[in-house]
């Protein structure tokens, strides 16, 4: 596996940084987070496979720009599928359905995966990265939805109604919830490192 994609796999905080846009934008609702996470996973898989298949034809100089175009093509395909089969969800995501085309995570993954040893390894890395981001996004969305809207996946939770923090449902809440998730990831990482030593 190439250095770039192996770094992506080994550094969960870097993954959160590169995938920060969808992790912040689509986490006000668990269903939106789940859908966006699946979309990112699908784009990673599709673009990874195509970039790997075309690896011999990608020139050295404009290689990365070509990878961005490949990712944009994959994101367009996913957008069309969403608009055709899940129009309500497509409308809920708005422009963020298209933004997947240019988030740093997908571009950097497609740029690095062309040097992978095999197609299987490229697919495995895409799945690992995509599933990790999906899980983090759903957890962050669950926290934000409970605290910000007193509901979970659209089902209202009466107990939390009097304890709602409206900011959690808005931009500041997204940053705070993701910061807490990143701190937990960092703490778990340093604990593992200490145990390894």
């Amino acid at each position: 596996m190439t250095e770039k994609t192996s770094i992506l796999q080994k550094d969960p905080l870097l993954l959160l940084l590169l995938g920060a846009c969808p992790a912040l934008a689509a986490t006000a609702d668990v269903r939106a987070a789940l859908g966006m996470g699946i979309m990112v996973l699908a784009v990673l898989l599709l673009s990874g496979i195509i970039a790997f298949a075309l690896r011999g034809r990608l020139s050295q100089g404009a290689g990365f720009a070509t990878c961005v175009i490949i990712v944009a093509g994959c994101a367009s395909v996913m957008q069309m599928l969403l608009a055709a089969f899940l129009p309500a969800f497509y409308n809920q995501l708005g422009i963020y359905a298209a933004i997947v085309a240019v988030i740093a995570l997908t571009g950097r993954f497609a740029g690095g995966v062309k040097e992978a040893e095999s197609m299987g390894q490229a697919v495995k890395t895409a799945l690992t990265i995509g599933l990790y981001l999906l899980v983090v996004m759903v957890i962050v969305a669950a926290v934000r939805e409970v605290l910000g809207f007193a509901s979970i996946a659209g089902v209202s939770l009466d107990f939390f109604e009097s304890y709602k923090i409206s900011a959690m449902g808005k931009a500041p809440g997204a940053y705070i919830a993701l910061a807490m998730a990143a701190a937990v990831v960092a703490a778990c990482g340093s604990k593992k490192e200490k145990e390894g030593k």
């Binding site: 940084l17 900011a167 931009a171 500041p172 910061a179 990143a182 701190a183 960092a186 703490a187 340093s190």
Partner: peptide, 19 residues
């Protein structure tokens, strides 16, 4: 704090700017 160094503290700064 160690766990908040790097990305978490950057996100908290962004949260303050957003507020």
């Amino acid at each position: 704090p160690a766990a908040f160094r790097g990305l978490p503290v950057s996100l908290l700064i962004a949260a303050m700017m957003s507020l």
